[in-house]
Write a protein that binds this DNA or RNA. Structure first.
Lengths: 143, 143
DNA sequence: TTTTAATCAGACAATTTCATCTGATTAAGT
DNA sequence: ACTTAATCAGATGAAATTGTCTGATTAAAA
């Protein structure tokens, strides 16, 4: 299978976008995220723990606890979430899997793929999660 | 980990490009490909079998047997190799993993990622492996 | 015609990713 | 204080991907 993000990262992105779309100001439990986004409860729980360690979300423990964004949505870039979960290795490793691949010693796809990869990086680096509040609300209401 | 192609597909692309760069006109054994490209022997052997079933490469059995391209290099697109190994699912599935994601009911990243994905598809669809003979020979000589 | 070296076929093993389980800790509400 | 419901931490289990092994078949070469 071909994949751009791991399942963990897909779920993490969904969850952070969900938190960013939260109108109420209350914390949101892993259980609610699990139910609303159809993500296995224990799995998203673990992912949210990771994101908490990474400083992207923060948590309130105990009864009535849950998660919320650790920063203003305009300060959280998509690339931050990807970096926290999958890492940024794909943005400087060879698309064909050659051990060394650089402008000096490029693989056959180096320049063709390099352009697309740069555009992808730029998109993830430019987009902050406040850009997606409306579209997330719309998506959630159609799940 | 974030990945664009599976390891199988990376190796398959390497191997087909290797066959396309072959000057001699002779068949090439899985063993040679394994040694030259540093790919586990039995693994690349299996991958070449898949590619043979898919009609991208052809094989000669018995002693002095090996593999060769089943078509002219100008008739083999990168997308054909990807389709044969990883499939094309990534080009019509949601980047965030939502079960349904379409222009009607898009995920938050639908349009941003959609553009990049189209460009990627276009590149893989446009590029045939005859385009990479020189660059492959250069790369091989530096391994 | 026997040996050798290759592909082919299918089972098996190891590793990584995905997902679950168990129990501890924390804090709100009764 | 006690109960309840949440996060936290670490182990465990399941599934997919990656990699290996064994033996059969094929065909060139001695």
């Amino acid at each position: 299978m071909t994949v751009i993000f791991s399942k963990k990262c897909e779920y993490g992105l969904q969850a952070v976008l969900y938190l960013a779309a939260n109108q109420s100001g209350d914390v949101i439990s892993a259980d609610e995220i699990s139910r609303k986004l159809n993500i296995p409860r224990e799995f998203i729980s673990k992912i949210l723990q990771n994101l908490t360690e990474s400083g992207i979300v923060d948590s309130k423990k105990g009864k009535a606890g849950g998660f919320f964004l650790a920063k203003h949505p305009s300060k959280i870039r998509l690339i931050d979430i990807v970096a926290a979960i999958d890492g940024l290795e794909m943005f400087n490793s060879c698309v064909l899997g050659f051990p060394s691949c650089s402008p000096d010693n490029p693989c056959p796809l180096h320049s063709k793929w390099g352009e697309l990869r740069s555009l992808t990086y730029k998109m993830l680096n430019d987009e902050t999660i406040d850009h997606f509040k409306e579209s997330t609300l719309r998506k959630i209401s159609n799940l």
